[in-house]
């Protein structure tokens, strides 16, 4: 009961002091200067038409405030999130926005108090419709990113003032290492044929089928699974158990920190991407974790996640417990 009372008080406080910030845009500044000038002119000359104009300008300011407030009220946001966020390059991020009643116009969204750059917008948000806002965000660095709220800004109706409101919403975004080129060779495979083309049975088409995957560049056209390719519309190749599929276990050495760690993470991510793309199995060894080797894009995602958490183990414990 006590709790409910507290909740109610908090709600009342929030209602009384809505967390808004108001910024005057560039054109708005000029507008205010002109309004001031017109006001001076009206007072000095007593010209009634200037008074009329001044009244119009001032009430436009008031109406603009009221409309933008109506526009930004009653908005609820949830994060749909992203598929994959790599550091240093834009990734698609989505918020689902809706409101119970009334329209909203010209909303722009961004993450509040986080180093994520960029934002997305929606021109018109009718009531009771969930609209997915897309944005290209950029994260500066790898690692888990705590998000505390979504910043909603509108310059509606006239673009004179930008009204901003932060909707508190906890969340976590895992930023994968930057995508670069791998400069080092992955080293020897743990399992699988040794050497590059020493195996005479390399392309003989025997061996158990382990799966299909898209034909990569420079691969033998004889490996194409024509039936499946025809049905899906893209060139798929057959992968066999005994062929060039090898297993690597990549390692991020202990004791790295700062830039060296970042560099190594990027390197490992790039290597893993390349090897998985070629159809090999890749595992990962870090100071406190081992990732079993596996293939496919799910494995790549797992590796990227593990790499993203490197160096942020403290936060990770909590997250693990939560999951």
């Amino acid at each position: 009961m006590n709790l409910r009372l507290k909740q109610r008080r908090a709600r009342l406080r929030a209602w009384l002091r809505p967390p808004r910030t108001l910024k005057v845009t560039r054109i708005g500044r000029t507008y205010l200067v002109v309004t001031f000038g017109v006001g001076l002119g009206a007072l000095n000359t007593g010209n009634n038409l200037l008074y009329l104009l001044l009244g119009l300008l001032l009430s436009m300011v008031v109406v603009s405030g009221v409309l933008s407030e109506r526009c930004i009220r009653d908005i609820s946001v949830r994060r749909v999130g992203t598929d994959a966020a790599f550091a240093g390059e834009p990734f698609a991020f989505r918020w689902a926005v809706s409101r119970k009643q009334g329209h909203a116009f010209a909303l722009t969204f961004s993450e509040a108090d986080s180093p994520l750059l960029g934002g997305g917008g929606v021109g018109y948000l009718p009531a009771n419709v969930e609209h997915v806002v897309r944005a290209n965000l950029t994260a500066p660095r790898r690692g888990p990113l705590r998000m505390t709220g979504v910043r909603v800004t509108t310059t509606w109706p006239l673009g004179l003032f930008a009204k901003t409101r932060v909707l508190p919403l906890e969340g976590l975004l895992l930023v994968y290492p930057k995508r670069t080129y791998a400069c080092q060779e992955p080293g020897d495979a743990e399992r699988g044929p040794v050497g590059d083309s020493g195996n005479p049975r390399r392309n003989d088409g025997s061996g158990d089928v382990t799966g299909l995957r898209e034909l990569a560049e420079g691969e033998d056209a004889r490996r194409i699974h024509w039936l499946k390719s025809a049905s899906t519309g893209k060139l798929l190749r057959v992968e066999r158990e005994r062929e060039e599929r090898r297993t690597w276990v990549l390692t991020v050495e202990a004791g790295l920190a700062g830039d060296a760690l970042e560099r190594r993470c990027e390197e490992v991510a790039a290597l893993a991407h390349r090897l998985l793309d070629e159809g090999h199995e890749v595992g990962l060894n870090t100071t406190d974790r081992r990732l079993r080797s596996g293939a496919g894009s799910a494995q790549e995602k797992r590796i990227l996640r593990a790499l993203a958490w490197l160096g942020f183990e403290g936060a990770r414990e909590e997250e693990e417990e939560a999951a």
Binding site: R78, G211, R213, S297
Partner: peptide, 25 residues
Amino acid sequence: RSAVQGVAARDEAAHLLEELTRKVP
């Protein structure tokens, strides 16, 4: 969307679906 087929695709789909259960309230 990705081109993986067979068991790997099922694994990935399962992974995605579990992710969805966390996202959809």
